Computed example of a mutant assay.
Amino acid sequence: MINLLKVGSPSETAGIEVEQSETAALSHLTNGILSTMAEITWDKLHAPIEKCFSIDESMIMYFGRRGRKQHIHGKPIRFGFKAWVAATRLGDCLRADLYQGRSEVRDVGLGEHVVTSLTESVKEVFPKHTFSVFCDIFFTSPSLLSKLQDKNVKVTGTARQNSVDKCPLKDVKSFKKEPRGSYDYRLDKNDNICAVRWNINNVVTLLSNEFGVNPIQKARRYSVTQKQRIEIDQPNVVYQYNKYMGGVDRLDANVGVYRIAIRGKKWYSCILTWLIDVTINNSALLARSLGASVDTLEFRRLIASNLLLKYGSPRTQPGSSTCPSPSNVPLSVRRHGAEHLILTGQIRRIFAGFHA
């Protein structure tokens, strides 16, 4: 990987290929570290395996000039490198894949390709477990649900109105006029896919091959006419989606609280420091899941103190420096042991001589 990152500045076409290889090398390094952490966490330490995780995009802060830098309006971090991340409900990062642009070779859409690749990498570590994936409107499609269902993976996510394969749900315009909490659903028995349309402040469409409408949950929303919070019906698929979808946002919040502020000269230094932050976040969550009552700040301080004790040099006493400091005063005068008395006058300070 180091050889890939130290390539010079070739022509424009070759530069694009070099940048792609650099990003691929960093993505391979990231997934390798996260895979090792997952195996240590769940296999050797016997930590509880999270069945549900969400997939979303995350931004790595970067303000320099680079072809892979992205700008996403409305994000807490607007400028930087984009990474596709799979994270649990509490923000434990399972996999991360750096976005490499349109140069990626794929035969399906970008959203379906991202969810499939991240899910398959998780299944490689734990092939016998059944996982539930939650994703937003950018990734969800009926073909994705059918494809992952064959691999023993359940998918739940919001979908666009025109991507439900002509499912005979109620029309959006007429459905908006119905009271809040109204819902409509259809079930595809061949692929076991449930399509749900729910009317809240806006009409939301969800697809799932794991959850359905029942049992009906209750959600509290503010009513403008009644001037108070009221309870409305909420399908179970919406409740489960709201519960498990925010894992990547939780990861960004955990990393953003105590982010490493070192700014290196290389463009990939921000990715490496982000990877260290993610690793510390996963370790802190693991420690708390095993019974340790320690917050993130105290956990980072413990890591720093232990690293200094193991790899740091011992602190020298004041005045006992190994290298002599330059001085114009002879050594015999500086170390003869006599005390010097300073007399303070109104004009200036003078030496009164040696005090016996």
Rank of each mutant, 00 (worst) to 15 (best):
F299W: 08
A261Y: 03
V238Y: 01
R102A: 04
L118F: 08
T316A: 09
L290Y: 01
L148E: 02
S103C: 04
K189C: 12
G91M: 05
S223W: 11
V155L: 11
R335N: 09
L90K: 08
L4V: 08
N281F: 00
I40G: 06
H73F: 04
K69L: 05
T88C: 08
A195W: 12
V18W: 06
K128F: 05
D92F: 12
P330R: 01
L343W: 04
R186V: 13
S320R: 10
G264C: 12
T296A: 06
H336W: 06
Q240A: 01
E39S: 09
N281R: 10
S174M: 15
I232R: 11
L307H: 14
A338T: 09
S11M: 01
S305M: 15
L251W: 07
V7S: 10
T88M: 03
S327K: 12
A284L: 04
Q226K: 14
K265N: 14
T273V: 02
S223I: 11
R349M: 02
I60N: 00
N281E: 08
G101W: 05
K310T: 10
H28L: 14
V133Y: 00
S305G: 11
H355R: 11
L169R: 07
A284M: 07
V213T: 15
A87Y: 06
L251R: 03
W42E: 04
L98F: 09
H113V: 00
R106H: 11
V122C: 00
T36K: 03
Y222V: 10
D107Y: 08
L206Q: 07
F211Q: 10
D252G: 00
C270Y: 00
Y244N: 14
T273C: 01
M37L: 09
F139M: 02
L343G: 12
G8D: 15
D233N: 14
L286A: 02
A24D: 10
A25H: 03
A83W: 00
L308G: 08
S9P: 06
K6R: 07
G264D: 09
P318Q: 10
W198R: 11
F299K: 04
W274N: 13
R68M: 07
R288D: 05
Q20N: 04
R102E: 06
R66C: 03
I280Q: 05
